[in-house]
């Protein structure tokens, strides 16, 4: 059931993405308005899919690839929607939505059916909140990554004095920077919470504090983004340099999601 719903969600996201592009190309605002509506619908369908999955497993589905990728995708889309509302800017969607689409597609395709019987340690609210906040924070940083790339692109276009095809359609440097700051400012405290919740949960399992590689990398990520916020506020690093920090932070996340997860981490394996 949840697989069918996931496919419907993928389709709905694709429609949304098409509408965002149509808006960029034709500049009809009607497309953008429709796109936002479709995004809301996609999020609801996607949520229903995840709900169906967790009903089946009787817990929030993190332990498998589908669960973590799908939740990641959902949150990226959700954070984008929130940003769109907050900053009244609809042209970024076309660049951002491919991420949730690919994530959800991967999750659905690579999903191996069969019920993972969850071990006792993977139950409980504390654990659920820990994982949810971490994924949420990483989603916020992913959004920040896209915004930073757009910033660098726009900056480059101004610098080389060659306003390209999308120059007039993309938001201003100032707005991209503001949207970027919002998403990082949301991500940092949530990641901090996630790490703390994780350690509380570990304590409950009578593990006092273990320097798991995944934990180390999470803390590094946290520091990088906290540094972003600090330097951004100070002004010296406003603009291009902040964008580069955000891109670096994202590369660290990719690294810790892939390499660290697969080869180093002991109990932070998702699948």
């Amino acid at each position: 059931m949840y697989i069918i719903l996931s496919w419907i969600a993928v389709l709905s996201y694709l429609v949304t993405e098409t509408l965002y592009w149509l808006n960029l190309v034709s500049r009809k605002l009607a497309y953008a308005k429709l796109a936002s509506r479709f995004l809301v619908i996609s999020l609801i369908i996607h949520f229903t899919a995840m709900l169906a999955r967790s009903r089946q497993l009787h817990l929030v589905p993190y332990k498998d690839l589908y669960g973590s990728l799908s939740l990641f995708a959902w949150m990226v889309a959700l954070i984008y929607l929130a940003l769109e509302f907050r900053h009244r800017q609809k042209s970024v969607g076309a660049f951002l939505l491919p991420i949730p689409i690919v994530l959800l597609l991967l999750g659905t395709l690579l999903n191996r059916p069969g019920t993972h019987t969850p071990s006792a340690e993977l139950r409980g609210m504390l654990f659920a909140y820990h994982v949810t906040s971490n994924i949420f924070a990483y989603s916020a940083f992913t959004v920040s990554f896209i915004l930073s790339m757009l910033y660098l692109l726009q900056h480059h276009q101004i610098r080389v004095r060659r306003p390209g095809l999308l120059f007039s359609r993309l938001p201003s440097l100032e707005l991209l920077e503001r949207m970027n700051r919002t998403s990082v400012a949301v991500g940092v405290p949530v990641l901090l919470c996630g790490i703390l919740l994780g350690s509380l949960w570990a304590r409950k399992l009578h593990v006092l504090w273990e320097w798991d590689p995944k934990l180390v990398w999470s803390i590094i990520t946290l520091l990088v983004y906290a540094g972003y916020l600090f330097l951004e506020k100070k002004g010296t690093w406003k603009g291009k340099r902040s964008a580069i920090i955000s891109v670096c932070g994202f590369l660290i996340i990719i690294f810790s999601y892939s390499v660290v997860n697969l080869f180093f981490s002991s109990f932070h394996k998702f699948y």
């Binding site: 500049r27 306003p163 201003s172 440097l173």
Partner: peptide, 19 residues
């Protein structure tokens, strides 16, 4: 949509920097 006078090009660029 695309400015063709010098002053409007300057204004558009300013708008892309400052919002």
């Amino acid at each position: 949509s695309r400015p063709v006078s010098l002053s409007s090009v300057a204004v558009e660029t300013a708008a892309k920097i400052f919002g």
